[in-house]
């Protein structure tokens, strides 16, 4: 049994990655299948349960007269008209969803740059780390939404407030994980870099950033979900536009199917962003994933 798993893994290391070789191993166990059957089976596995759940939602609510639980048919019916109404340039998608996502990306980008730069600086110096750590731990522990009323004092309720809210919320996980990653660098590699007299810039680029990147990605992933939360929350406090603002507006005006369509759209935005994130990290961390896999396979 373990032999089968082992060979599956070995053949997988040359291929694309973890998922596929896990599937290989699973199939080696359940017995060989024909090519077409295999494709059909994996498609069914991916689509099966969501289809069942959606159908159940559709059927169970179809005759619903409940005010708060409109039929899925109605929600889907209002979806296109609510978000993609004509003309397209004046639709809510362009007026509300796009600004929200742009603010998220701006705040997230700022947090990423500041967090990594500060994290590398703090992580490289033992004294600086001891000096800054308690303060940073405090700021990380402050639940980011409580910063919204504070930042509203300084920046009003405009776009800059929202970007800063997102940036300050996303900063801490990135910063602290970068510090951890830099701290945990292999000392042998550090000494090697020194022995080869790598310049400061080269050391940071090839050793520090690369070595810390798995940790940075972990922080960036946590930050992304916080960022989405803050994108919505900052708009729920006060705003003129945005996805979160629209949803609250629908709720307050008791436009329930429209509100549900907004909730679904927000969910889809979250899922899409996490897919993009995964694609980016798979591309940048392919060396690490391969390395870890070879370590696993060798063990």
């Amino acid at each position: 049994m373990s032999g089968t798993g082992g060979t599956g893994r070995m053949s997988g290391t040359g291929g694309t990655g973890g998922v596929r070789d896990r599937v290989h191993a699973a199939e080696a166990r359940t017995g060989a299948r024909t090519g077409l059957g295999r494709v059909l089976r994996s498609v069914l596995l991916v689509v099966g349960l969501p289809a069942v759940l959606l159908t159940a939602w559709w059927v169970l609510t179809d005759g619903s007269t409940s005010y708060f639980n409109p039929p899925l048919r109605t929600i889907v019916g209002t979806f296109g008209e609510t978000w993609f109404g004509s003309p397209f340039a004046e639709s809510r998608f362009v007026q509300d969803v796009v600004p929200s996502v742009l603010r998220l990306l701006a705040g997230y980008g700022i947090a990423l740059v500041v967090g990594v730069v500060l994290g590398v600086a703090i992580g490289s110096s033992r004294a600086l780390r001891a000096y800054a750590e308690p303060v940073l731990e405090f700021f990380r522990a402050v639940p980011p939404p409580v910063m919204v009323p504070i930042l509203m004092l300084f920046l009003g309720i405009g776009t800059s407030m929202k970007i800063v809210v997102i940036a300050t919320g996303c900063l801490w996980p990135i910063l602290l994980n970068t510090v951890e990653g830099v701290r945990g660098l292999d000392p042998v590699l550090r000494d090697t870099a020194r022995a080869y007299r790598l310049g400061r810039a080269a050391t940071v680029r090839h050793l520090v950033l690369r070595g810390a990147s798995p940790q940075i990605v972990t922080g960036a992933r946590q930050a992304l979900s916080i960022g989405i939360i803050l994108m919505v929350i900052s708009e729920m406090f006060a705003a003129k536009d945005g996805l979160g603002f629209s949803i609250v507006q629908f709720q307050r005006s008791f436009a329930i199917p429209e509100m549900w369509s907004g909730v679904i759209l927000l969910g889809v935005v979250g899922v899409l962003l996490s897919l993009v994130f995964r694609a980016v990290t798979n591309a940048t961390l392919s060396w690490y994933l391969g390395y870890r896999q070879s370590q696993h396979g060798g063990a």
Partner: peptide
């Protein structure tokens, strides 16, 4: 249970990143 895992994987991957704050209006109404 391997088959349960295989069947639920896509649903979990889809529901997990749905931001919980999306539920605020729903929670208020309910």
């Amino acid at each position: 249970v391997p088959w349960l895992r295989a069947v639920t994987a896509s649903t979990i991957e889809f529901l997990r990143p749905v931001p919980s704050v999306a539920l605020i209006p729903v929670a208020i109404l309910l």
